[in-house]
């Protein structure tokens, strides 16, 4: 089957039930999306499918249609997305394992809601678990990124 990841078309030959996460990580060597739980309860696997957030650990690859974006496609060290830049500015990460998922969820939130308040952030981000407890800085970085994005488009 064919899937499109970060703008590149790939041919993969796997069981249709294989979750997208494992197609990305083990078939395509795209290791940005992380394995944390396998049951959509930690968010470390979050990618975008047609710009919408998805927990790739729970999406059978046979059901995926459209353009897949992983953290690597959102931005690179030399060309970071505003959300990633805000994350670096606020030194959000501790161990960093959950952060690709956090960033993908945050970027999706800001697409839908350019000026999220605390309640909106609570609703959009509480399915992304961080065992290191970086939540205060995640919140601050989302608000900073939101402002940067609004200013850029103004």
């Amino acid at each position: 089957m064919q899937i499109n990841v970060n703008g590149t078309q790939h041919e993969v030959d796997v069981d249709e039930e294989m979750p997208l996460l494992w197609v990305l990580r083990d078939e395509l060597n795209i290791t940005g999306p992380k394995f944390g739980c396998g049951i959509a309860m930690c968010g470390a696997c979050t990618v975008h499918i047609n710009g919408q957030p998805a927990r790739s650990c729970s999406m059978p690859v046979g059901q995926v249609s459209g353009l897949i974006t992983t953290i690597e496609g959102l931005g690179t060290p030399d060309a970071m997305h505003e959300v990633q830049a805000a994350w670096v500015e606020h030194q959000v990460a501790q161990c960093g394992y959950c952060q690709p998922g956090q960033i993908m969820s945050a970027a999706a939130l800001l697409q839908m809601n350019p000026n999220p308040d605390d309640e909106a952030i609570d609703h959009a981000m509480s399915a992304n678990l961080c065992r290191c407890g970086t939540y205060p800085r995640i919140r601050a970085a989302i608000k900073a990124a939101a402002q940067n994005i609004r200013e850029k488009s103004a």
Partner: peptide, 20 residues
């Protein structure tokens, strides 16, 4: 500024589980 911050925010950091 943490030297590993950019890689951890761009999915380019290698954890044990990412080794290829």
């Amino acid at each position: 500024p943490r030297v590993d911050m950019v890689e951890k925010c761009t999915g380019t950091a290698t954890f044990g589980i990412d080794v290829l």
